[in-house]
Design a protein around this nucleic acid. Structure first.
Lengths: 240, 240
DNA sequence: CGGATGCTTCGGTTACGATCGAAGTATGAA
DNA sequence: TTCATACTTCGATCGTAACCGAAGCATCCG
């Protein structure tokens, strides 16, 4: 017994519902104030404050003071990755929320996962990139091909610039709603920013879901076609 | 708030020290009885029993009755993967055990991670396989090359057989002690079994650490050479 | 059968931590 | 300076869950 790192500590940090809700709220990558997080956790500001100190001491959160506000973010994308992997796991074990809320269908369709696109549309995008040969998938790993580099550069992604950062270009990230992989990494982030910049989609205020404009949706689907054979997984009961 | 799967539930399951210890004990892939797990968790049998029901209800454990014993295992390798990823995360945040025990150096050198080799030797093996071109690494993913298939078949690994299973052949798994990747997947499992079969190494009774015989160690190091440049990370304070 | 072993269930205690009201500190605005 | 906002710290309460002793089943053994 007592071998290796202490998983109980971070399990306990994530194990409290209020804290879990706050962490989930931060998974869209934005920095939130203590007050906003208190609301997200459904608790008072005092309680949230103690929770936030614990999360920071545990290395899950980073904070930066700005005037009289204190902004909290996930400490780095390792945390986002961890949380998403727990979500993926929880989804496979049926640990879903008791009452699927009204926002559930929108979340399943398109949402932000730390900083990239997830949900049905995220999975579809990766599927399409792979089937058109823009990204090659070997085992767990993803790799941008030359053809893919050309294609993405042509729609305004600075692939060369992304390559120069330390962060991996392509990572696959397990999608808890689709239970299949979508594209993470700096390329995943860049693609989503690209959609925002072009006005194809926008964030929603109090949710991780992403809203596409009808024009944006049309363009997105045209840009990332899916062959007929792969369409059969798209239907899903949406009303729940 | 209240979006997505319930990460708090499984966080809470892992967050209790006694449960975390029991889960860690199961990470060597063996099936343990309730009594053994109680000892691993440092609690009485009654308490362990309730913990074990909770873990089973949560989908983390599977049990099978055999006579008057009840054997528990991790429900599947998704659980092992999850636990190891939390360990990796915990290690990067300095959530180490308060008092590194006497078994710590042995654990860092070679231990079992669910069903494959981890620790210094695990990392070394993967490094060597990559540097000799037996495995190619692209991004996050690992892939066995033709040369690697030939090489491993020659030492008695049934690569063709492994390919026919659903489980991925090569997966990379973050090592919490070395903070680098080692080889998981069915190939990782097969390699470790191969070492056991050849008598190069054996499990220890109450720990996840793996003991190499001096002959086995010699053979292992010869089979997986590391070029001089990569050796500089090998030294590590061992006394702690 | 009786006795031993392995485990579960029950009941009651205890301790920890989540929670909030209230007071305290810091920053900014008027 | 004074007031307001944003947040933290203190103090006290309260609920939950971890815990163990004891009793209850189940299985095996002789």
């Amino acid at each position: 017994m007592k071998e290796g790192p202490d998983i109980a500590q971070i399990g306990a940090l994530i194990g409290d519902p209020a804290r879990a809700n706050m962490l989930t709220a931060l998974m869209d990558g934005r920095a939130l104030t203590a007050t906003e997080l208190a609301e997200a956790g459904g608790i008072t500001l005092q309680t949230a404050s103690t929770h936030l100190s614990k999360l920071e001491a545990g290395g899950l959160l980073a904070q930066r003071k700005q005037g009289r506000h204190r902004y909290f973010t996930l400490a780095d994308d390792g945390v986002g990755k961890l949380l998403e992997s727990i979500m993926g796991f929880a989804a496979t074990r049926g640990h879903l929320r008791h009452r699927p809320g009204p926002k559930e269908p929108a979340l399943r369709k398109a949402r932000i996962c730390y900083d990239h696109l997830a949900g049905d549309y995220g999975v579809r995008m990766l599927d399409s990139l792979i089937s058109t040969g823009a990204i090659s998938a070997v085992g767990d790993g993803l790799n941008l091909t030359e053809r893919g580099e050309t294609q993405l550069t042509s729609i305004g992604i600075d692939v060369t610039g992304l390559r120069s950062t330390r962060r991996p270009l392509c990572r696959s990230c397990l999608d808890w709603s689709e239970r299949r992989a979508h594209l993470a990494g700096s390329l995943g982030k860049a693609l989503l920013s690209n959609f925002f910049d072009k006005g194809w989609a926008r964030r929603t205020e109090n949710s991780r879901s992403i809203l596409f404009t009808s024009e944006g949706e049309r363009r997105f689907l045209a840009l990332f076609p899916v062959e007929a054979g792969a369409m059969n997984k798209e239907q899903e009961s949406v009303d729940a």
